[in-house]
Computed example of a mutant assay.
Amino acid sequence: MTQVMPVPNVAPPAYQPSETMTPAPLALRRRLGQSDLRVFPLALGGNVFGWTADGQTTDEILDTYADHGGNFIDTADSYAGGRSEIMIGNWMRSRGNRDRIVVATKVGKGPENSGVTAQAVSRAVNDSLRRLGTDHIDLLYLHIDDTAVPFEETLFAVDDLVRMGKVRYFGAADHTGDRLIEARVIAAQLGVTPMVAVQQHYNLVHRRSFEADIARVAAQQQLGVMPRFALASGFLTGKYRTRADVARNSRGADAGRYLSRRGLRVLACLDAIVAEQRAQGIEVATVAAVSLAWLLTKRNVVAPVASASHAAQVLDLMASATIQLSRHQLAALDRASA
């Protein structure tokens, strides 16, 4: 059985917000589906916390994000064997900011409570609450779609957690459009809590599966969409442009699959738009920020999920919320990525 080692309970040094802190205006916040949650339009991914980012680096990343107006953190019980949740929980406790943070986590793939049976979901949520050091999860995702488990069983289990106040809202990750429709119908029949959100693989170089299936259902059900792999495993940062670039980075293999004529066409288009934006004085424009800004123009998209390996990358990602793309630029990106 996998054991999650707790982070030592050592008091961190007193935290002082940056003097150059420029909190995001509340106008940037977006409503998440049909919920009352309002979030910054970039969800900070916690998949690196406890894996490639140690405790100090994690705190620096989270501090930078929160100092500049970020309030939406995305994690899962399976990330680093639960350590991601522990580190986020420790950070919230040390900063005293739990009531200002929207926490999203996922259950279904955790080593201790895999699957979406009623028992697995209930145990997983209770374990996540313990690791996060909180009494509620703002947004819970079902991390897998197990068709062997009746949706009725899973939906009843989630509804019980909502009624107990342990979960505020929930959604799905990587479910098909047909399954989202099925879930909505069953929820209506049973009179239980419906989904408000969906997290799905979607970016400039991975469009077809989302746009052909989930986009229509999300619009019909008014689901908030959180695109995951929003930067295509780093490809849409512009970091990987040759096979040599991929070979030099131990984490470049996933990005390397996009290194094709189409992928390079997308990067060339992004480069041109970055140059146009900077010529207009938009110095925060980067390949990554423009890639995320494109996602933010799509219907029902609330907040792409992107992670940072170190604090210096965070503002680059957050800049996407303030970049305005012209109709000409959007059309060019649509054509290049078609």
Rank of each mutant, 00 (worst) to 15 (best):
R327I: 07
R228W: 15
I88M: 03
M21A: 15
S114I: 11
A279H: 11
A188E: 14
T147N: 11
I73S: 08
S337I: 02
Q222P: 05
S35A: 02
Q189H: 12
P150H: 09
F72M: 06
S18W: 04
V192P: 02
V162S: 06
R95T: 05
A272S: 14
D59G: 06
Q119H: 15
N47Y: 06
Y240H: 13
P12H: 09
T322I: 11
P25N: 01
A215E: 09
D160V: 13
F40T: 04
A148C: 10
V205K: 04
V301C: 11
N300F: 00
D145N: 15
L270R: 04
V205M: 12
T20R: 11
V266F: 10
L28P: 11
K109M: 15
A247N: 11
G171T: 00
L270D: 00
A331M: 10
T286D: 06
V305P: 03
Q324R: 15
Y65V: 01
R243E: 15
D174H: 14
V162Y: 03
V116H: 07
Q3D: 10
H143P: 10
A53N: 10
D135G: 10
P304V: 07
R208H: 15
V274W: 05
R216D: 13
F170Y: 15
I101L: 10
Y240C: 03
H201Y: 12
A247I: 08
L190F: 00
T75H: 05
L129H: 09
